[in-house]
């Protein structure tokens, strides 16, 4: 898998997986998380700065990304009494993830490995405004006031650039999203960085990861470069707005945002500036018309 030569095109590397400091793990392998009683069990939201992550590693913490936990199962029912229906799918995922790994909401939906038995001792929330939306402030209030979990708010002003090798490689787009999330952990643990080869692009995807439905990635060719906030994440500078605004005017580009995300304004504005850009937004689950719009755009631009 490391070289990106994935023979089964239908395989989704993020399906049914949990993102931890140990990378994406699935199924039974999760059992290593079973009894971290001797270690602090910390949830993170967003990309905390290097300094904070290093401190966690020095404490041998078990770290669980609450953004990415159960990436492919966006189960939002538990948020129904907390958030309105018309709300960002990713915030719903974060809240549902927190509820699923704490005592607050239990067993039946998520597997019981983590539920209840190993409640999170602390949640660190990166709340750098520019990186994400200020909805994070609401998530923080909810954690503090309703769940009474110890909360630490941090800002990420890291500027050391780690590059965009994955974004500009030829590995399938859905794997790019997974590898970029994993890259963050590899870097912290000082593992050899994953540096797939550069590929000449046929088109580009600009935006946040498509939290509401990763299957949208399957419509893009492997030669898709990634821009926008996802690229900032690989670069480990999630607050670098200048980098986020960049695009390549020479290749057809899909400017994506989650529905109800403030970044939609930026995405549609940049799409209007791009000579061959198209803006699309998506809530939970890709719709027939979005697929038709996207595939027509890619076909008419001779990308697929």
């Amino acid at each position: 898998m490391e070289n990106g030569n994935n023979e089964n095109k239908n395989y989704n590397p993020m399906q049914d997986m949990v993102l931890t400091r140990h990378g994406f793990v699935n199924g039974k392998e999760q059992s290593f998380l079973k009894n971290p009683k001797d270690k602090p069990f910390i949830g993170i939201i967003g990309i905390p700065p290097r300094e904070v992550m290093e401190e966690l590693i020095s404490r041998s913490a078990i770290i669980l990304s609450l953004d990415m936990y159960k990436v492919d199962r966006l189960i939002t029912e538990p948020t129904d009494n907390i958030l309105p229906k018309a709300y960002c799918a990713q915030i719903k995922r974060i809240i549902a993830n927190i509820l699923s790994v704490t005592d607050y909401w239990n067993e039946d939906v998520m597997d019981s490995v983590l539920v209840g038995r190993n409640p999170i001792s602390e949640i660190i929330i990166e709340d750098s405004e520019i990186c994400r939306c200020n909805e994070m402030g609401f998530v923080a209030d909810f954690i503090e006031n309703e769940l009474k979990i110890k909360l630490r708010r941090v800002k990420n002003n890291d500027l050391e650039k780690k590059g965009d090798f994955i974004c500009k490689s030829g590995i399938p787009l859905d794997e790019k999203f997974g590898k970029i999330a994993g890259y963050f952990y590899r870097d912290m643990e000082k593992k050899k960085p994953f540096r797939p080869e550069y590929v000449q692009p046929k088109c580009a995807f600009w935006g946040t990861p498509p939290w509401g439905d990763f299957s949208i990635a399957n419509y893009f060719p492997d030669e898709t470069h990634v821009y926008g906030w996802t690229r900032c994440v690989e670069n480990l500078t999630p607050g670098d707005l200048k980098l986020e605004l960049e695009f390549d005017p020479d290749i057809p580009t899909v400017f994506f945002s989650q529905s109800f995300c403030p970044k939609a304004g930026l995405a549609s504005y940049l799409a209007s500036k791009h000579p061959r850009g198209m803006f699309i937004d998506m809530d939970i689950g890709i719709t027939r018309s979005t697929v038709a719009k996207l595939t027509a755009f890619l076909q008419l631009n001779k990308v697929i």
């Binding site: 000579p275 061959r276 198209m278 719709t287 018309s289 038709a292 719009k293 027509a296 755009f297 008419l300």
Partner: peptide, 16 residues
């Protein structure tokens, strides 16, 4: 809608 310039596809969109 679709927009073409000199025979080349430029834009399209669909509001549903």
């Amino acid at each position: 809608y679709v927009v073409f310039e000199n025979g080349n596809f430029i834009h399209s969109d669909w509001n549903t």
